[in-house]
Design a protein around this nucleic acid. Sequence first.
DNA 1: GGCTGTGAGTTGCATTTTGCAACATCTGTC
DNA 2: GACAGATGTTGCAAAATGCAACTCACAGCC
Lengths: 147, 147
Amino acid sequence: MTDDDRQLPGLVRELVTLSRRFRSNADRLHPDLSFVDYSLLTEMAERNGARAGDLVGLYNLNKSTISRQVTALRQAGLVVREPDPGNPRAQLLHPSDRGRELLALADARMRREVDMRTEGWSPDEVRALRTLLARYNGAASAAVEDV
Amino acid sequence: MTDDDRQLPGLVRELVTLSRRFRSNADRLHPDLSFVDYSLLTEMAERNGARAGDLVGLYNLNKSTISRQVTALRQAGLVVREPDPGNPRAQLLHPSDRGRELLALADARMRREVDMRTEGWSPDEVRALRTLLARYNGAASAAVEDV
DNA sequence: GGCTGTGAGTTGCATTTTGCAACATCTGTC
DNA sequence: GACAGATGTTGCAAAATGCAACTCACAGCC
């Protein structure tokens, strides 16, 4: 299989464009919950509790970055933490009630946004994008964790 | 068509994960050309010259951000500019020879990376991801430019 | 029981990325 | 020649991030 078959340069370009643009659009969409805060709350909610280290691994960031962002969320009253039953040294992070409220609002706007961007797509196409992205993201996680 | 048919919440989550992770991975991949610099050089090269305003529109950033980043690239000798023949007030930005060199190196690494991430995918799947992302990005541009 | 090492997070310090608002410049138009 | 709009730039401030050094608590070992 040649590079050309897979059109990799084009794919790289689209990934770059998406990555650089998505954050600012998200910030504009829900000014009361930054893209960063939104991403962290989403994962805490989806995973039913996340450790700081999980978030470090997921986003491939320095642990100091996550530590500060989580601290800010706790100080803002959007996140609570409790001891992790499965690991006595770790803490599990959860959205607070207020965190869940803000998350729900931001979620609604994000869904509406993506809904508009995919207007005219067939359901299969939308699902295909989701599936392929999930696969790509999954592969990326695995590779990162290999280190 | 219901939301559920389209699995929008899942799509949103994957888009967020990709956006937050891709930049740091790219920075690690080619430390001599930051993700930001890479994105700007790529567009200048692909478009065969870009105006600062084009980049502002593409990435939906403040013009001061682009202005500074382009200035840095010019000072680093990676970008040159010339008057835009089609618009006397504007300047066209191009990668310099050195810029093209660094871009080629970073490109090779990025392609190799994406190639690895999509190992085991059929060519159709890789092309589908590219096509769908391009469509999504195109829709986003259009909507942003509507404002 | 006390030592020591490791895992999980935090903090000090610096850099990069970004936004907003004010300013500068240049181009056309009247 | 004055004014309006397009194109950038600069001053100022905040958010996001990395690195290295540190704290703290648990775990295993003697």
